[in-house]
Computed example of a mutant assay.
Amino acid sequence: MRISVVLPAHNEAGNIGRLVEETYAVLPRSLLHEVIVVDDCSEDGTRDEVLALRPSYRSLRYLRHGSRAGQSAALRTGILAAASPVIAMMDGDAQNDPADIPNLVAKLGEPGSDGPALVGGLRADRKDTGSKRLASRAANWIRDAVLKDDCPDTGCGIKVYWRQAFMRLPFFTTMHRYLPVLFLTYGYRVEYVPVNDRPRVAGKSKYSNLGRALIGVYDLLGVTWLRRRTAVPPVAEDSGAERLVSERETA
Protein backbone atom coordinates (compact mmCIF):
# COMPACT_ATOMS: atom_id res chain seq x y z
CA MET A 1 0.00 0.00 0.00
CA ARG A 2 1.54 3.29 -1.10
CA ILE A 3 0.61 6.27 1.03
CA SER A 4 -0.10 9.98 0.82
CA VAL A 5 1.51 11.93 3.67
CA VAL A 6 -0.58 14.98 4.63
CA LEU A 7 1.06 17.77 6.63
CA PRO A 8 -1.23 20.57 7.88
CA ALA A 9 0.82 23.67 8.69
CA HIS A 10 0.28 27.18 9.99
CA ASN A 11 3.30 29.43 10.54
CA GLU A 12 5.76 26.53 10.63
CA ALA A 13 8.76 28.14 8.92
CA GLY A 14 11.89 26.47 10.26
CA ASN A 15 10.00 23.21 10.81
CA ILE A 16 8.04 22.30 7.69
CA GLY A 17 10.94 22.26 5.27
CA ARG A 18 13.01 19.99 7.51
CA LEU A 19 10.03 17.68 7.99
CA VAL A 20 9.40 17.39 4.24
CA GLU A 21 13.05 16.60 3.53
CA GLU A 22 13.19 14.07 6.36
CA THR A 23 10.02 12.37 5.16
CA TYR A 24 11.46 11.82 1.71
CA ALA A 25 14.77 10.67 3.21
CA VAL A 26 13.40 8.00 5.56
CA LEU A 27 10.39 6.61 3.67
CA PRO A 28 11.12 4.16 0.84
CA ARG A 29 9.83 5.02 -2.61
CA SER A 30 7.92 1.74 -2.62
CA LEU A 31 5.81 3.14 0.24
CA LEU A 32 5.62 6.88 -0.36
CA HIS A 33 3.41 8.11 -3.20
CA GLU A 34 3.27 11.82 -2.38
CA VAL A 35 3.66 14.46 0.32
CA ILE A 36 0.94 17.11 0.54
CA VAL A 37 1.57 20.24 2.59
CA VAL A 38 -1.61 22.20 3.33
CA ASP A 39 -0.77 25.74 4.38
CA ASP A 40 -3.56 27.15 6.52
CA CYS A 41 -2.94 30.75 5.48
CA SER A 42 0.49 31.14 7.09
CA GLU A 43 1.95 34.61 7.54
CA ASP A 44 5.60 33.60 7.76
CA GLY A 45 7.97 31.83 5.40
CA THR A 46 6.12 28.49 5.33
CA ARG A 47 5.15 28.86 1.66
CA ASP A 48 8.64 29.81 0.50
CA GLU A 49 10.17 26.95 2.48
CA VAL A 50 7.94 24.34 0.82
CA LEU A 51 8.09 25.75 -2.71
CA ALA A 52 11.89 25.85 -2.55
CA LEU A 53 11.80 22.05 -2.24
CA ARG A 54 9.48 21.39 -5.18
CA PRO A 55 12.31 21.10 -7.75
CA SER A 56 13.91 18.35 -5.64
CA TYR A 57 10.76 16.31 -5.00
CA ARG A 58 8.40 15.84 -7.94
CA SER A 59 5.66 14.30 -5.79
CA LEU A 60 5.63 17.19 -3.30
CA ARG A 61 2.37 19.15 -3.47
CA TYR A 62 1.60 22.51 -1.85
CA LEU A 63 -1.96 23.64 -1.18
CA ARG A 64 -2.80 26.94 0.50
CA HIS A 65 -6.06 28.07 2.09
CA GLY A 66 -7.33 31.50 1.15
CA SER A 67 -8.33 32.14 4.76
CA ARG A 68 -7.43 30.45 8.01
CA ALA A 69 -9.74 27.51 8.77
CA GLY A 70 -7.90 25.40 11.35
CA GLN A 71 -5.99 22.12 11.46
CA SER A 72 -8.94 19.83 10.78
CA ALA A 73 -9.92 21.81 7.69
CA ALA A 74 -6.32 21.70 6.43
CA LEU A 75 -6.21 17.98 7.03
CA ARG A 76 -9.44 17.44 5.12
CA THR A 77 -8.22 19.58 2.22
CA GLY A 78 -5.14 17.39 1.93
CA ILE A 79 -7.09 14.14 2.14
CA LEU A 80 -9.56 15.29 -0.51
CA ALA A 81 -6.61 15.98 -2.81
CA ALA A 82 -4.74 12.76 -1.98
CA ALA A 83 -4.32 10.10 -4.65
CA SER A 84 -3.51 7.13 -2.39
CA PRO A 85 -5.98 4.93 -0.50
CA VAL A 86 -3.90 5.20 2.71
CA ILE A 87 -3.25 8.50 4.50
CA ALA A 88 -0.42 9.22 6.92
CA MET A 89 -0.80 12.47 8.85
CA MET A 90 1.76 14.34 10.93
CA ASP A 91 1.77 17.74 12.59
CA GLY A 92 3.71 20.39 10.67
CA ASP A 93 5.83 21.31 13.70
CA ALA A 94 8.21 18.34 13.09
CA GLN A 95 7.67 16.89 16.57
CA ASN A 96 6.42 13.67 14.94
CA ASP A 97 9.06 11.37 13.47
CA PRO A 98 8.34 10.19 9.90
CA ALA A 99 10.54 7.14 10.54
CA ASP A 100 7.64 5.78 12.62
CA ILE A 101 5.26 5.69 9.64
CA PRO A 102 6.26 2.25 8.29
CA ASN A 103 5.57 0.66 11.68
CA LEU A 104 2.10 2.20 11.76
CA VAL A 105 1.36 1.14 8.18
CA ALA A 106 2.44 -2.43 9.00
CA LYS A 107 -0.36 -2.64 11.60
CA LEU A 108 -3.01 -1.25 9.26
CA GLY A 109 -5.54 -3.73 7.91
CA GLU A 110 -6.17 -4.14 4.20
CA PRO A 111 -8.99 -1.94 2.86
CA GLY A 112 -12.26 -3.81 3.15
CA SER A 113 -10.93 -6.23 5.76
CA ASP A 114 -11.81 -6.37 9.45
CA GLY A 115 -8.30 -5.21 10.38
CA PRO A 116 -7.56 -1.82 11.94
CA ALA A 117 -8.68 1.09 9.76
CA LEU A 118 -6.70 3.56 11.87
CA VAL A 119 -3.37 3.10 13.65
CA GLY A 120 -2.41 5.94 15.97
CA GLY A 121 0.86 6.87 17.58
CA LEU A 122 1.44 6.56 21.31
CA ARG A 123 4.14 8.91 22.61
CA ALA A 124 6.18 6.95 25.12
CA ASP A 125 8.43 9.86 26.14
CA ARG A 126 6.83 13.22 25.44
CA LYS A 127 9.15 16.21 24.97
CA ASP A 128 6.59 18.92 25.80
CA THR A 129 6.61 21.05 28.94
CA GLY A 130 5.47 19.54 32.23
CA SER A 131 2.27 21.60 32.20
CA LYS A 132 1.32 20.30 28.75
CA ARG A 133 2.04 16.70 29.72
CA LEU A 134 -0.10 17.09 32.84
CA ALA A 135 -2.92 18.74 30.89
CA SER A 136 -2.77 15.97 28.30
CA ARG A 137 -3.01 13.21 30.91
CA ALA A 138 -6.00 14.93 32.50
CA ALA A 139 -7.69 15.42 29.12
CA ASN A 140 -7.14 11.78 28.14
CA TRP A 141 -8.61 10.59 31.45
CA ILE A 142 -11.70 12.79 31.07
CA ARG A 143 -12.22 11.84 27.45
CA ASP A 144 -11.92 8.13 28.15
CA ALA A 145 -14.33 8.41 31.08
CA VAL A 146 -16.93 10.10 28.87
CA LEU A 147 -16.35 8.51 25.44
CA LYS A 148 -14.97 5.14 26.58
CA ASP A 149 -12.81 4.89 23.45
CA ASP A 150 -9.69 3.46 25.19
CA CYS A 151 -7.48 5.97 23.37
CA PRO A 152 -4.26 6.42 25.39
CA ASP A 153 -2.92 9.45 23.48
CA THR A 154 -5.46 11.22 21.31
CA GLY A 155 -3.23 14.28 21.01
CA CYS A 156 -0.49 12.44 19.15
CA GLY A 157 -0.39 13.92 15.66
CA ILE A 158 0.96 10.93 13.74
CA LYS A 159 -1.67 8.49 12.47
CA VAL A 160 -2.29 6.33 9.41
CA TYR A 161 -5.73 5.31 8.14
CA TRP A 162 -7.84 4.37 5.17
CA ARG A 163 -8.83 7.41 3.14
CA GLN A 164 -12.21 5.86 2.30
CA ALA A 165 -13.01 5.41 5.99
CA PHE A 166 -12.09 9.01 6.80
CA MET A 167 -14.39 10.28 4.06
CA ARG A 168 -17.35 8.60 5.76
CA LEU A 169 -16.85 10.63 8.94
CA PRO A 170 -18.77 13.82 9.75
CA PHE A 171 -16.60 16.92 9.47
CA PHE A 172 -16.26 19.60 12.14
CA THR A 173 -13.46 22.05 12.77
CA THR A 174 -11.69 20.14 15.56
CA MET A 175 -12.33 16.59 14.36
CA HIS A 176 -8.60 15.77 14.16
CA ARG A 177 -8.62 15.47 17.97
CA TYR A 178 -11.39 12.85 17.84
CA LEU A 179 -10.38 10.61 14.95
CA PRO A 180 -10.02 7.39 17.01
CA VAL A 181 -13.47 7.68 18.58
CA LEU A 182 -15.04 8.68 15.26
CA PHE A 183 -13.54 5.63 13.55
CA LEU A 184 -14.87 3.43 16.35
CA THR A 185 -18.30 5.05 16.13
CA TYR A 186 -18.46 4.18 12.44
CA GLY A 187 -17.65 0.55 13.07
CA TYR A 188 -13.89 0.47 12.37
CA ARG A 189 -11.11 -1.05 14.45
CA VAL A 190 -8.36 1.15 15.91
CA GLU A 191 -4.90 0.22 17.22
CA TYR A 192 -1.92 2.10 18.65
CA VAL A 193 1.85 1.81 18.22
CA PRO A 194 4.57 3.46 20.38
CA VAL A 195 6.25 6.32 18.50
CA ASN A 196 9.04 8.82 18.96
CA ASP A 197 8.34 12.36 20.17
CA ARG A 198 10.65 15.30 19.56
CA PRO A 199 10.90 18.81 20.98
CA ARG A 200 9.79 21.78 18.92
CA VAL A 201 12.88 23.62 17.64
CA ALA A 202 11.25 26.56 15.84
CA GLY A 203 8.07 28.58 16.08
CA LYS A 204 5.54 28.23 18.85
CA SER A 205 2.52 26.11 19.67
CA LYS A 206 -0.84 27.32 18.39
CA TYR A 207 -2.67 26.09 21.50
CA SER A 208 -2.72 27.05 25.17
CA ASN A 209 -3.81 24.68 27.92
CA LEU A 210 -6.76 26.93 28.88
CA GLY A 211 -7.89 27.51 25.30
CA ARG A 212 -7.73 23.82 24.46
CA ALA A 213 -9.63 22.93 27.65
CA LEU A 214 -12.48 25.35 26.92
CA ILE A 215 -12.87 24.13 23.35
CA GLY A 216 -12.45 20.54 24.53
CA VAL A 217 -15.46 20.66 26.87
CA TYR A 218 -17.67 22.01 24.09
CA ASP A 219 -16.43 19.41 21.61
CA LEU A 220 -16.69 16.58 24.11
CA LEU A 221 -20.38 17.26 24.57
CA GLY A 222 -20.89 17.34 20.80
CA VAL A 223 -18.97 14.12 20.11
CA THR A 224 -20.83 12.38 22.95
CA TRP A 225 -24.15 13.37 21.36
CA LEU A 226 -22.92 12.33 17.92
CA ARG A 227 -21.78 8.91 19.14
CA ARG A 228 -25.08 8.21 20.86
CA ARG A 229 -27.08 9.28 17.81
CA THR A 230 -25.05 7.34 15.22
CA ALA A 231 -26.07 3.86 14.08
CA VAL A 232 -23.94 2.02 11.53
CA PRO A 233 -25.39 -1.51 11.17
CA PRO A 234 -23.43 -4.07 9.16
CA VAL A 235 -24.86 -5.02 5.76
CA ALA A 236 -26.14 -8.58 6.15
CA GLU A 237 -27.06 -9.12 2.50
CA ASP A 238 -26.44 -7.48 -0.88
CA SER A 239 -28.08 -9.60 -3.54
CA GLY A 240 -27.34 -7.24 -6.42
CA ALA A 241 -23.57 -6.88 -6.05
CA GLU A 242 -22.54 -9.85 -8.23
CA ARG A 243 -24.79 -8.81 -11.12
CA LEU A 244 -23.46 -5.24 -11.10
CA VAL A 245 -19.85 -6.44 -11.08
CA SER A 246 -20.60 -8.78 -13.99
CA GLU A 247 -22.21 -5.96 -16.00
CA ARG A 248 -19.18 -3.73 -15.47
CA GLU A 249 -16.80 -6.46 -16.61
CA THR A 250 -18.75 -7.16 -19.80
CA ALA A 251 -19.50 -3.52 -20.68
Rank of each mutant, 00 (worst) to 15 (best):
S246K: 14
D238V: 10
L122I: 04
R229T: 13
Y24C: 06
F183C: 02
S84I: 04
F171R: 09
D150N: 14
D197Q: 01
A81N: 09
R228K: 13
L210I: 07
P102S: 10
A52M: 08
S4V: 06
S239R: 15
E249M: 13
K127T: 12
M1Q: 11
D144N: 15
E34T: 07
D114V: 13
R189Q: 11
R126C: 08
G203K: 01
S84Q: 13
V235T: 15
E247N: 10
N96V: 03
G157V: 07
G78D: 06
L184P: 00
Q71R: 15
W162I: 00
V160F: 09
E237Y: 11
D238T: 02
D153M: 09
G155P: 00
G120D: 04
A25W: 07
K127W: 01
K206D: 13
L182Q: 02
L210C: 00
A138C: 13
A69Y: 02
M90H: 02
P85C: 10
A231F: 09
G216P: 03
N15I: 00
A81M: 04
P233E: 05
I101M: 03
G109V: 10
A138N: 08
Y57M: 08
A13V: 06
I36D: 06
R54P: 02
S239F: 08
L244F: 11
L226R: 10
A165T: 05
G187L: 04
F183Q: 05
Y218M: 02
C41I: 00
L31A: 06
D128K: 02
N103L: 12
R126N: 10
I16E: 00
A145I: 03
E191L: 10
L31K: 01
D48Y: 06
G211N: 11
G157F: 09
T23Y: 02
L118K: 05
T250E: 14
R227S: 06
P152E: 11
R189L: 07
D44Y: 09
Y62A: 08
V20C: 15
L53A: 11
D40R: 04
D97P: 03
M167Q: 15
P98L: 13
R61P: 03
R58T: 07
V26D: 06
L147I: 15
P102I: 12
Y161Q: 05
L220D: 04
K107I: 00
G240Q: 11
V195N: 01
V86W: 02
V37I: 14
L182P: 06
